[in-house]
Design a protein around this nucleic acid. Sequence first.
DNA 1: TATAGTCAGATAGTCGACAATCGACCGTAA
DNA 2: TTACGGTCGATTGTCGACTATCTGACTATA
Lengths: 219, 219
Amino acid sequence: MGKLERISMKDRLATELRRKILAGDLPPHARVVEQDLADEYGVSRAVVRETMLVLELQGLIISTPYKGSEVASISRTEVEGLLLPLRIHIEQFALAEGLALFDADTFEDFGRVLADMERAIYNKDINAFNEADMRFHAIIVDGCPTDSARSIWDSIHPRIRMHFAMQTGRTGALSEFLEDHKRLVDVFRTGDVAASREAIAAHIIGTNEPHLGLLDESA
Amino acid sequence: MGKLERISMKDRLATELRRKILAGDLPPHARVVEQDLADEYGVSRAVVRETMLVLELQGLIISTPYKGSEVASISRTEVEGLLLPLRIHIEQFALAEGLALFDADTFEDFGRVLADMERAIYNKDINAFNEADMRFHAIIVDGCPTDSARSIWDSIHPRIRMHFAMQTGRTGALSEFLEDHKRLVDVFRTGDVAASREAIAAHIIGTNEPHLGLLDESA
DNA sequence: TATAGTCAGATAGTCGACAATCGACCGTAA
DNA sequence: TTACGGTCGATTGTCGACTATCTGACTATA
Protein backbone atom coordinates (compact mmCIF):
# COMPACT_ATOMS: atom_id res chain seq x y z
CA MET A 1 0.00 0.00 0.00
CA GLY A 2 1.39 3.36 -0.97
CA LYS A 3 1.12 4.85 2.47
CA LEU A 4 3.92 7.31 1.85
CA GLU A 5 1.78 10.37 2.05
CA ARG A 6 0.53 11.27 5.47
CA ILE A 7 -2.73 13.11 5.01
CA SER A 8 -4.70 14.32 7.97
CA MET A 9 -8.26 13.18 8.49
CA LYS A 10 -9.31 16.80 8.12
CA ASP A 11 -7.88 17.01 4.61
CA ARG A 12 -9.24 13.65 3.56
CA LEU A 13 -12.67 14.50 4.83
CA ALA A 14 -12.55 17.91 3.17
CA THR A 15 -11.69 16.30 -0.14
CA GLU A 16 -14.50 13.80 0.24
CA LEU A 17 -17.12 16.37 1.17
CA ARG A 18 -16.02 18.67 -1.60
CA ARG A 19 -16.42 15.80 -4.02
CA LYS A 20 -19.88 15.08 -2.71
CA ILE A 21 -20.95 18.69 -2.99
CA LEU A 22 -19.56 19.07 -6.50
CA ALA A 23 -21.10 15.79 -7.58
CA GLY A 24 -24.47 16.96 -6.36
CA ASP A 25 -24.76 14.35 -3.61
CA LEU A 26 -25.00 17.26 -1.21
CA PRO A 27 -27.13 19.82 -3.03
CA PRO A 28 -27.29 23.52 -2.13
CA HIS A 29 -29.14 24.21 1.13
CA ALA A 30 -28.65 20.65 2.30
CA ARG A 31 -28.27 20.65 6.04
CA VAL A 32 -24.95 19.44 7.42
CA VAL A 33 -24.72 18.20 11.01
CA GLU A 34 -21.33 17.72 12.60
CA GLN A 35 -22.19 14.65 14.66
CA ASP A 36 -23.78 12.91 11.71
CA LEU A 37 -20.64 13.34 9.63
CA ALA A 38 -18.48 12.24 12.55
CA ASP A 39 -20.50 9.04 12.88
CA GLU A 40 -20.65 8.42 9.16
CA TYR A 41 -16.90 8.70 8.64
CA GLY A 42 -15.82 7.36 12.01
CA VAL A 43 -13.94 10.45 13.15
CA SER A 44 -14.36 12.83 16.01
CA ARG A 45 -16.34 16.04 15.84
CA ALA A 46 -13.13 18.05 16.18
CA VAL A 47 -12.01 16.73 12.81
CA VAL A 48 -15.39 17.45 11.29
CA ARG A 49 -15.38 20.97 12.67
CA GLU A 50 -12.00 21.77 11.15
CA THR A 51 -13.14 20.31 7.87
CA MET A 52 -16.27 22.43 7.90
CA LEU A 53 -14.21 25.49 8.63
CA VAL A 54 -12.10 24.85 5.56
CA LEU A 55 -15.15 24.36 3.37
CA GLU A 56 -16.75 27.46 4.83
CA LEU A 57 -13.72 29.60 4.03
CA GLN A 58 -13.80 28.13 0.54
CA GLY A 59 -17.40 29.25 0.22
CA LEU A 60 -18.96 25.82 -0.13
CA ILE A 61 -20.61 25.84 3.28
CA ILE A 62 -22.49 28.51 5.18
CA SER A 63 -22.57 28.09 8.92
CA THR A 64 -24.40 30.03 11.58
CA PRO A 65 -23.32 29.96 15.25
CA TYR A 66 -25.25 27.45 17.34
CA LYS A 67 -27.65 26.83 14.49
CA GLY A 68 -25.81 24.72 12.00
CA SER A 69 -24.42 24.62 8.52
CA GLU A 70 -25.73 24.10 5.06
CA VAL A 71 -24.31 23.74 1.59
CA ALA A 72 -23.96 27.12 -0.07
CA SER A 73 -25.59 28.12 -3.31
CA ILE A 74 -23.67 30.13 -5.84
CA SER A 75 -25.25 32.82 -7.96
CA ARG A 76 -24.50 33.41 -11.57
CA THR A 77 -23.65 37.03 -10.86
CA GLU A 78 -20.88 36.18 -8.47
CA VAL A 79 -19.44 33.53 -10.76
CA GLU A 80 -19.37 35.67 -13.87
CA GLY A 81 -18.68 39.03 -12.30
CA LEU A 82 -16.33 38.04 -9.54
CA LEU A 83 -15.04 34.49 -9.43
CA LEU A 84 -14.19 33.86 -13.07
CA PRO A 85 -12.27 37.12 -13.56
CA LEU A 86 -10.33 36.44 -10.37
CA ARG A 87 -9.54 32.94 -11.48
CA ILE A 88 -8.32 34.14 -14.85
CA HIS A 89 -6.04 36.62 -13.21
CA ILE A 90 -4.60 34.01 -10.86
CA GLU A 91 -3.88 31.52 -13.62
CA GLN A 92 -2.36 34.23 -15.80
CA PHE A 93 -0.15 35.28 -12.95
CA ALA A 94 0.84 31.67 -12.34
CA LEU A 95 1.86 31.32 -15.98
CA ALA A 96 3.81 34.56 -15.92
CA GLU A 97 5.74 33.37 -12.89
CA GLY A 98 5.88 29.68 -13.59
CA LEU A 99 5.82 28.88 -17.29
CA ALA A 100 9.58 29.11 -17.57
CA LEU A 101 9.83 26.47 -14.84
CA PHE A 102 7.67 23.92 -16.63
CA ASP A 103 9.80 20.83 -17.22
CA ALA A 104 9.39 17.30 -18.54
CA ASP A 105 7.69 16.24 -15.33
CA THR A 106 5.19 19.02 -15.68
CA PHE A 107 4.25 17.97 -19.17
CA GLU A 108 4.05 14.37 -18.07
CA ASP A 109 1.51 15.50 -15.48
CA PHE A 110 -0.45 17.29 -18.20
CA GLY A 111 -0.30 14.15 -20.29
CA ARG A 112 -1.72 12.02 -17.52
CA VAL A 113 -4.58 14.47 -17.00
CA LEU A 114 -5.37 14.50 -20.72
CA ALA A 115 -5.40 10.72 -20.72
CA ASP A 116 -7.77 10.72 -17.76
CA MET A 117 -10.01 13.11 -19.67
CA GLU A 118 -10.16 10.74 -22.61
CA ARG A 119 -10.98 7.87 -20.31
CA ALA A 120 -13.70 9.94 -18.65
CA ILE A 121 -15.22 10.73 -22.02
CA TYR A 122 -15.13 7.07 -23.00
CA ASN A 123 -16.85 6.17 -19.74
CA LYS A 124 -19.21 9.11 -20.03
CA ASP A 125 -18.20 9.95 -16.47
CA ILE A 126 -18.67 13.68 -16.19
CA ASN A 127 -17.52 13.81 -12.59
CA ALA A 128 -14.26 12.15 -13.50
CA PHE A 129 -13.85 14.60 -16.35
CA ASN A 130 -14.42 17.55 -14.08
CA GLU A 131 -11.99 16.18 -11.58
CA ALA A 132 -9.36 15.88 -14.32
CA ASP A 133 -10.12 19.41 -15.43
CA MET A 134 -9.52 20.62 -11.92
CA ARG A 135 -6.17 18.82 -11.78
CA PHE A 136 -5.20 20.33 -15.12
CA HIS A 137 -5.57 23.82 -13.80
CA ALA A 138 -4.03 22.89 -10.46
CA ILE A 139 -0.85 21.95 -12.33
CA ILE A 140 -0.74 25.44 -13.78
CA VAL A 141 -1.26 27.12 -10.44
CA ASP A 142 1.17 24.84 -8.65
CA GLY A 143 3.79 25.53 -11.28
CA CYS A 144 4.14 28.99 -9.88
CA PRO A 145 6.70 29.52 -7.12
CA THR A 146 4.38 31.87 -5.28
CA ASP A 147 2.46 29.75 -2.80
CA SER A 148 -0.43 32.16 -2.33
CA ALA A 149 -1.45 31.56 -5.90
CA ARG A 150 -2.52 28.05 -5.08
CA SER A 151 -3.97 29.04 -1.75
CA ILE A 152 -6.18 31.75 -3.24
CA TRP A 153 -7.05 29.58 -6.22
CA ASP A 154 -8.24 26.93 -3.79
CA SER A 155 -10.55 29.42 -2.15
CA ILE A 156 -12.10 30.52 -5.44
CA HIS A 157 -12.13 27.56 -7.74
CA PRO A 158 -14.51 25.24 -5.84
CA ARG A 159 -17.31 27.81 -6.01
CA ILE A 160 -16.96 28.10 -9.78
CA ARG A 161 -16.94 24.37 -10.18
CA MET A 162 -19.94 24.05 -7.94
CA HIS A 163 -21.88 26.55 -9.98
CA PHE A 164 -21.28 24.69 -13.18
CA ALA A 165 -21.83 21.32 -11.54
CA MET A 166 -25.44 22.45 -11.26
CA GLN A 167 -25.60 22.80 -15.02
CA THR A 168 -26.23 19.83 -17.23
CA GLY A 169 -25.54 21.03 -20.74
CA ARG A 170 -21.84 20.39 -20.70
CA THR A 171 -21.75 16.71 -21.56
CA GLY A 172 -22.25 17.08 -25.27
CA ALA A 173 -19.12 19.16 -25.70
CA LEU A 174 -16.69 17.14 -23.64
CA SER A 175 -14.55 16.04 -26.54
CA GLU A 176 -14.27 19.57 -27.79
CA PHE A 177 -13.38 20.55 -24.24
CA LEU A 178 -10.60 17.97 -24.26
CA GLU A 179 -9.21 19.36 -27.53
CA ASP A 180 -9.17 22.79 -25.97
CA HIS A 181 -6.95 21.50 -23.18
CA LYS A 182 -4.63 19.79 -25.65
CA ARG A 183 -4.22 23.03 -27.54
CA LEU A 184 -3.40 24.76 -24.27
CA VAL A 185 -0.60 22.33 -23.53
CA ASP A 186 0.75 22.90 -27.02
CA VAL A 187 0.91 26.62 -26.37
CA PHE A 188 2.63 26.02 -23.03
CA ARG A 189 5.26 23.93 -24.78
CA THR A 190 6.31 26.90 -26.88
CA GLY A 191 7.24 28.71 -23.67
CA ASP A 192 5.60 31.88 -24.92
CA VAL A 193 4.28 33.57 -21.80
CA ALA A 194 2.12 36.19 -23.49
CA ALA A 195 0.52 33.62 -25.78
CA SER A 196 -0.06 31.28 -22.86
CA ARG A 197 -1.71 34.00 -20.82
CA GLU A 198 -3.98 34.83 -23.73
CA ALA A 199 -4.79 31.20 -24.27
CA ILE A 200 -5.68 30.45 -20.68
CA ALA A 201 -7.97 33.47 -20.51
CA ALA A 202 -9.71 32.50 -23.72
CA HIS A 203 -9.99 28.94 -22.48
CA ILE A 204 -11.58 29.88 -19.17
CA ILE A 205 -13.94 32.36 -20.75
CA GLY A 206 -14.77 30.14 -23.67
CA THR A 207 -15.52 27.07 -21.63
CA ASN A 208 -17.53 28.85 -18.99
CA GLU A 209 -19.48 31.58 -20.70
CA PRO A 210 -22.97 30.23 -21.28
CA HIS A 211 -23.53 32.19 -24.48
CA LEU A 212 -20.96 30.10 -26.26
CA GLY A 213 -23.30 27.19 -26.11
CA LEU A 214 -21.25 24.85 -23.98
CA LEU A 215 -23.65 25.40 -21.17
CA ASP A 216 -27.35 25.75 -21.12
CA GLU A 217 -29.19 28.73 -19.78
CA SER A 218 -30.86 27.11 -16.80
CA ALA A 219 -30.38 28.28 -13.21
CA MET B 1 -20.14 45.89 29.41
CA GLY B 2 -21.56 45.72 25.90
CA LYS B 3 -21.84 41.97 25.79
CA LEU B 4 -24.57 42.06 23.18
CA GLU B 5 -22.46 40.59 20.44
CA ARG B 6 -21.87 36.89 20.75
CA ILE B 7 -18.54 36.28 19.11
CA SER B 8 -16.87 32.91 19.28
CA MET B 9 -13.51 32.57 20.94
CA LYS B 10 -12.13 31.44 17.62
CA ASP B 11 -13.09 34.70 15.95
CA ARG B 12 -11.90 36.85 18.82
CA LEU B 13 -8.58 35.07 18.92
CA ALA B 14 -8.23 35.30 15.16
CA THR B 15 -8.81 39.04 15.29
CA GLU B 16 -6.30 39.41 18.09
CA LEU B 17 -3.61 37.37 16.39
CA ARG B 18 -4.18 39.11 13.08
CA ARG B 19 -3.73 42.41 14.87
CA LYS B 20 -0.51 41.21 16.45
CA ILE B 21 0.86 40.01 13.15
CA LEU B 22 -0.06 43.18 11.32
CA ALA B 23 1.33 45.32 14.12
CA GLY B 24 4.61 43.48 13.91
CA ASP B 25 4.35 41.94 17.36
CA LEU B 26 4.53 38.59 15.61
CA PRO B 27 7.08 39.11 12.83
CA PRO B 28 7.42 36.83 9.81
CA HIS B 29 8.91 33.44 10.60
CA ALA B 30 7.99 33.78 14.27
CA ARG B 31 7.17 30.38 15.64
CA VAL B 32 3.63 29.83 16.86
CA VAL B 33 2.87 27.02 19.30
CA GLU B 34 -0.73 25.99 19.91
CA GLN B 35 -0.36 25.19 23.59
CA ASP B 36 1.42 28.47 24.29
CA LEU B 37 -1.41 30.46 22.75
CA ALA B 38 -3.98 28.36 24.58
CA ASP B 39 -2.27 29.11 27.89
CA GLU B 40 -1.72 32.77 27.08
CA TYR B 41 -5.34 33.45 26.20
CA GLY B 42 -6.93 30.96 28.55
CA VAL B 43 -8.68 28.89 25.91
CA SER B 44 -8.41 25.29 24.84
CA ARG B 45 -6.18 24.07 22.09
CA ALA B 46 -9.24 23.24 19.98
CA VAL B 47 -10.03 26.93 19.78
CA VAL B 48 -6.46 27.79 18.96
CA ARG B 49 -6.35 25.16 16.25
CA GLU B 50 -9.46 26.50 14.55
CA THR B 51 -8.04 29.99 14.79
CA MET B 52 -4.77 28.91 13.23
CA LEU B 53 -6.66 27.21 10.44
CA VAL B 54 -8.42 30.46 9.62
CA LEU B 55 -5.18 32.41 9.63
CA GLU B 56 -3.52 29.74 7.52
CA LEU B 57 -6.24 29.91 4.89
CA GLN B 58 -5.86 33.67 4.94
CA GLY B 59 -2.18 33.24 4.22
CA LEU B 60 -0.86 34.77 7.43
CA ILE B 61 0.36 31.49 8.91
CA ILE B 62 2.20 28.57 7.41
CA SER B 63 1.82 25.27 9.22
CA THR B 64 3.47 21.92 8.69
CA PRO B 65 1.96 18.69 10.00
CA TYR B 66 3.41 17.55 13.32
CA LYS B 67 6.06 20.25 13.14
CA GLY B 68 4.36 23.49 13.91
CA SER B 69 3.39 26.85 12.47
CA GLU B 70 5.07 30.12 11.79
CA VAL B 71 4.05 33.56 10.65
CA ALA B 72 4.19 33.81 6.87
CA SER B 73 6.25 36.28 4.93
CA ILE B 74 4.81 37.98 1.89
CA SER B 75 6.84 38.77 -1.18
CA ARG B 76 6.60 41.94 -3.17
CA THR B 77 5.94 39.94 -6.31
CA GLU B 78 2.84 38.30 -4.98
CA VAL B 79 1.48 41.53 -3.58
CA GLU B 80 1.97 43.58 -6.71
CA GLY B 81 1.36 40.89 -9.31
CA LEU B 82 -1.37 38.92 -7.64
CA LEU B 83 -2.96 40.30 -4.49
CA LEU B 84 -3.39 43.96 -5.39
CA PRO B 85 -4.99 43.31 -8.79
CA LEU B 86 -7.35 40.80 -7.22
CA ARG B 87 -8.26 43.24 -4.50
CA ILE B 88 -8.96 45.97 -7.01
CA HIS B 89 -11.22 43.68 -8.95
CA ILE B 90 -13.14 42.65 -5.84
CA GLU B 91 -13.73 46.21 -4.68
CA GLN B 92 -14.74 47.28 -8.16
CA PHE B 93 -17.19 44.43 -8.32
CA ALA B 94 -18.54 45.35 -4.90
CA LEU B 95 -19.13 48.92 -6.07
CA ALA B 96 -20.80 47.76 -9.26
CA GLU B 97 -23.18 45.60 -7.27
CA GLY B 98 -23.54 47.67 -4.15
CA LEU B 99 -23.09 51.38 -4.81
CA ALA B 100 -26.76 51.86 -5.57
CA LEU B 101 -27.54 50.38 -2.17
CA PHE B 102 -25.40 52.84 -0.22
CA ASP B 103 -27.69 54.75 2.13
CA ALA B 104 -27.41 57.29 4.93
CA ASP B 105 -26.20 54.62 7.32
CA THR B 106 -23.45 53.64 4.94
CA PHE B 107 -22.19 57.20 4.70
CA GLU B 108 -22.41 57.56 8.46
CA ASP B 109 -20.12 54.54 8.68
CA PHE B 110 -17.71 56.19 6.26
CA GLY B 111 -17.87 59.34 8.36
CA ARG B 112 -16.95 57.50 11.51
CA VAL B 113 -14.01 55.84 9.81
CA LEU B 114 -12.76 59.17 8.47
CA ALA B 115 -13.03 60.64 11.97
CA ASP B 116 -11.03 57.74 13.35
CA MET B 117 -8.40 58.37 10.72
CA GLU B 118 -8.09 61.99 11.81
CA ARG B 119 -7.78 60.91 15.40
CA ALA B 120 -5.13 58.38 14.47
CA ILE B 121 -3.15 61.04 12.63
CA TYR B 122 -3.42 63.37 15.63
CA ASN B 123 -2.19 60.57 17.89
CA LYS B 124 0.44 59.52 15.36
CA ASP B 125 -0.94 56.00 15.79
CA ILE B 126 -0.21 54.28 12.52
CA ASN B 127 -1.76 50.99 13.62
CA ALA B 128 -5.03 52.75 14.42
CA PHE B 129 -4.89 54.45 11.05
CA ASN B 130 -4.34 51.18 9.25
CA GLU B 131 -7.19 49.62 11.17
CA ALA B 132 -9.47 52.44 10.10
CA ASP B 133 -8.31 52.05 6.53
CA MET B 134 -9.23 48.40 6.65
CA ARG B 135 -12.69 49.24 7.97
CA PHE B 136 -13.14 51.81 5.21
CA HIS B 137 -12.66 49.22 2.54
CA ALA B 138 -14.65 46.64 4.46
CA ILE B 139 -17.64 48.97 4.23
CA ILE B 140 -17.29 48.96 0.47
CA VAL B 141 -17.06 45.20 0.24
CA ASP B 142 -19.86 44.64 2.72
CA GLY B 143 -22.08 47.00 0.77
CA CYS B 144 -22.32 44.39 -1.90
CA PRO B 145 -25.12 41.86 -1.67
CA THR B 146 -22.86 39.07 -2.85
CA ASP B 147 -21.43 37.44 0.25
CA SER B 148 -18.44 35.85 -1.44
CA ALA B 149 -17.05 39.29 -2.10
CA ARG B 150 -16.37 39.79 1.58
CA SER B 151 -15.27 36.23 2.07
CA ILE B 152 -12.68 36.41 -0.70
CA TRP B 153 -11.64 39.89 0.27
CA ASP B 154 -10.96 38.57 3.76
CA SER B 155 -8.68 35.93 2.35
CA ILE B 156 -6.66 38.39 0.30
CA HIS B 157 -6.58 41.65 2.17
CA PRO B 158 -4.64 40.59 5.29
CA ARG B 159 -1.66 39.55 3.21
CA ILE B 160 -1.53 42.92 1.49
CA ARG B 161 -1.80 44.73 4.76
CA MET B 162 0.87 42.55 6.24
CA HIS B 163 3.24 43.30 3.41
CA PHE B 164 2.88 47.02 3.86
CA ALA B 165 2.96 46.77 7.62
CA MET B 166 6.57 45.78 7.14
CA GLN B 167 7.22 49.09 5.46
CA THR B 168 7.85 52.20 7.47
CA GLY B 169 7.72 55.04 5.01
CA ARG B 170 4.00 55.57 5.12
CA THR B 171 3.71 57.79 8.16
CA GLY B 172 4.69 61.02 6.48
CA ALA B 173 1.83 60.89 4.01
CA LEU B 174 -1.00 59.95 6.34
CA SER B 175 -2.87 63.23 6.00
CA GLU B 176 -2.69 63.02 2.23
CA PHE B 177 -3.94 59.47 2.55
CA LEU B 178 -6.89 60.70 4.59
CA GLU B 179 -7.76 63.27 1.93
CA ASP B 180 -7.71 60.52 -0.65
CA HIS B 181 -10.34 58.63 1.30
CA LYS B 182 -12.48 61.74 1.67
CA ARG B 183 -12.41 62.26 -2.07
CA LEU B 184 -13.44 58.65 -2.54
CA VAL B 185 -16.51 59.14 -0.37
CA ASP B 186 -17.39 62.24 -2.37
CA VAL B 187 -17.33 60.21 -5.55
CA PHE B 188 -19.47 57.51 -3.96
CA ARG B 189 -22.04 60.15 -3.01
CA THR B 190 -22.58 60.99 -6.65
CA GLY B 191 -23.74 57.43 -7.23
CA ASP B 192 -21.70 57.22 -10.41
CA VAL B 193 -20.66 53.58 -10.63
CA ALA B 194 -18.10 53.96 -13.40
CA ALA B 195 -16.44 56.91 -11.71
CA SER B 196 -16.41 55.10 -8.39
CA ARG B 197 -14.80 52.04 -9.92
CA GLU B 198 -12.15 54.21 -11.51
CA ALA B 199 -11.58 56.04 -8.28
CA ILE B 200 -11.17 52.96 -6.13
CA ALA B 201 -8.68 51.45 -8.57
CA ALA B 202 -6.67 54.64 -8.66
CA HIS B 203 -6.83 54.85 -4.91
CA ILE B 204 -5.57 51.32 -4.32
CA ILE B 205 -2.84 51.61 -6.91
CA GLY B 206 -1.85 55.08 -5.87
CA THR B 207 -1.62 54.35 -2.19
CA ASN B 208 0.19 51.07 -2.57
CA GLU B 209 2.58 51.47 -5.45
CA PRO B 210 5.99 52.22 -3.98
CA HIS B 211 7.08 54.45 -6.83
CA LEU B 212 4.59 57.07 -5.81
CA GLY B 213 6.66 57.80 -2.78
CA LEU B 214 4.18 56.85 -0.12
CA LEU B 215 6.29 53.85 0.67
CA ASP B 216 10.00 53.40 0.83
CA GLU B 217 11.91 50.88 -1.16
CA SER B 218 13.04 48.64 1.66
CA ALA B 219 12.20 44.94 1.93
C1' DT C 1 35.39 8.15 13.94
C1' DA C 2 31.30 7.31 11.61
C1' DT C 3 27.08 5.23 11.33
C1' DA C 4 22.89 3.23 12.86
C1' DG C 5 19.73 2.38 16.59
C1' DT C 6 17.26 4.00 20.60
C1' DC C 7 15.27 7.09 23.67
C1' DA C 8 13.07 11.27 25.46
C1' DG C 9 10.98 15.76 25.03
C1' DA C 10 8.15 18.78 22.43
C1' DT C 11 4.31 19.42 19.59
C1' DA C 12 0.53 18.54 16.54
C1' DG C 13 -3.51 15.16 15.60
C1' DT C 14 -7.49 13.05 17.49
C1' DC C 15 -10.92 11.89 20.72
C1' DG C 16 -14.95 11.74 24.08
C1' DA C 17 -17.39 14.51 27.38
C1' DC C 18 -19.40 18.67 29.23
C1' DA C 19 -21.42 23.49 28.65
C1' DA C 20 -24.00 26.92 26.09
C1' DT C 21 -27.38 28.05 22.91
C1' DC C 22 -31.26 27.64 19.87
C1' DG C 23 -35.93 26.47 18.36
C1' DA C 24 -40.01 24.06 18.94
C1' DC C 25 -43.45 22.47 21.87
C1' DC C 26 -46.60 22.95 25.57
C1' DG C 27 -49.16 24.70 29.39
C1' DT C 28 -51.26 28.65 31.55
C1' DA C 29 -53.57 32.94 32.20
C1' DA C 30 -55.71 37.27 30.62
C1' DT D 1 -57.96 32.76 21.37
C1' DT D 2 -53.59 34.56 21.98
C1' DA D 3 -49.61 36.02 24.20
C1' DC D 4 -46.31 34.81 27.50
C1' DG D 5 -42.99 31.87 29.78
C1' DG D 6 -40.89 27.48 30.83
C1' DT D 7 -39.20 22.95 29.48
C1' DC D 8 -36.77 19.83 26.51
C1' DG D 9 -34.35 17.82 22.65
C1' DA D 10 -31.04 18.85 19.11
C1' DT D 11 -26.88 20.99 17.80
C1' DT D 12 -22.86 23.71 18.17
C1' DG D 13 -19.01 25.71 21.29
C1' DT D 14 -15.40 24.51 24.40
C1' DC D 15 -12.47 21.69 27.12
C1' DG D 16 -8.91 18.34 28.97
C1' DA D 17 -6.73 14.04 28.03
C1' DC D 18 -4.77 10.61 25.11
C1' DT D 19 -2.11 9.27 20.79
C1' DA D 20 0.97 9.84 16.84
C1' DT D 21 4.80 12.00 14.93
C1' DC D 22 8.95 14.68 14.62
C1' DT D 23 13.56 16.19 16.18
C1' DG D 24 17.69 16.04 18.40
C1' DA D 25 20.67 13.86 21.63
C1' DC D 26 22.73 9.90 23.35
C1' DT D 27 24.67 5.31 22.89
C1' DA D 28 26.49 1.21 20.87
C1' DT D 29 29.04 -0.87 17.47
C1' DA D 30 32.02 -1.62 13.47
